[in-house]
């Protein structure tokens, strides 16, 4: 197990990439870890590509710079795969999690990725089914928890219940559990 994992979240303005980054960080705090969560600092425009970052470590995090070589990349919107270099700087043993109904092997091929491990999860489909809205950030959080084992589902549940109104929290945690289950590894 590495001391520190660095996550980069790719989404579009309004899809909640930063919220996903923040929820993951808050859940890790419940497990006694050190965290950082920050958005790409700039004006956010609805629909424009955005990034957010999470650091989770067993030791105090002293770094105060952007993440250039992530361990984990999560892509909330598959249309970004064609326009944004989502795997830029990914570590040799890095993990890529993509919101896609496709098989991980297919996504890996389209990313021309030779190293690393790809996971896919039909996050939008899960969100539509349970929330009735295409808000896929919590589904991606569930898939990230599964792919990295960095936090337990119980910690995420606690965080979501603290962060959202009871009914919203319950539905979102259902989404997280479902994504955790449905996430597929190549």
């Amino acid at each position: 197990m590495k001391k520190m994992l660095e996550f980069r979240w790719h989404g579009r303005g309004g899809q909640g990439a930063w919220t996903a980054s923040e929820l993951l960080a808050r859940a890790a705090i419940y497990e006694g870890k050190y965290i950082q969560s920050f958005p790409e600092f700039g004006p956010e425009r609805m629909g424009a590509p955005v990034t957010a970052f999470t650091r989770i470590s067993t030791e105090l995090i002293r770094l105060h710079c952007s993440i250039y070589e992530p361990d984990v990349v999560a892509v909330l919107d598959h249309t970004l795969l064609k326009t944004v270099p989502v795997v830029a700087g990914l570590k040799e043993d890095g993990i890529v999690i993509v919101n896609s109904a496709d098989k991980p092997e297919k996504v890996k091929k389209s990313l021309k990725l030779e190293k690393g491990q790809v996971w896919t999860v039909p996050a939008t489909e899960i969100a539509l089914r349970i929330l009735g809205m295409p808000i896929m950030n919590t589904a991606m959080l569930g898939a990230a928890a599964r792919a990295t084992s960095i936090v337990a589902l119980e910690s995420i549940e606690k965080t979501v219940k603290e962060r959202f109104r009871a009914d919203v929290a319950e539905k979102n945690f259902a989404v997280i559990k479902e994504a955790f289950k449905e996430a597929k590894q190549e």
Partner: peptide
């Protein structure tokens, strides 16, 4: 870097 970043 500090004002908008979540930390312990």
């Amino acid at each position: 870097t500090l004002s908008h970043t979540l930390e312990n």
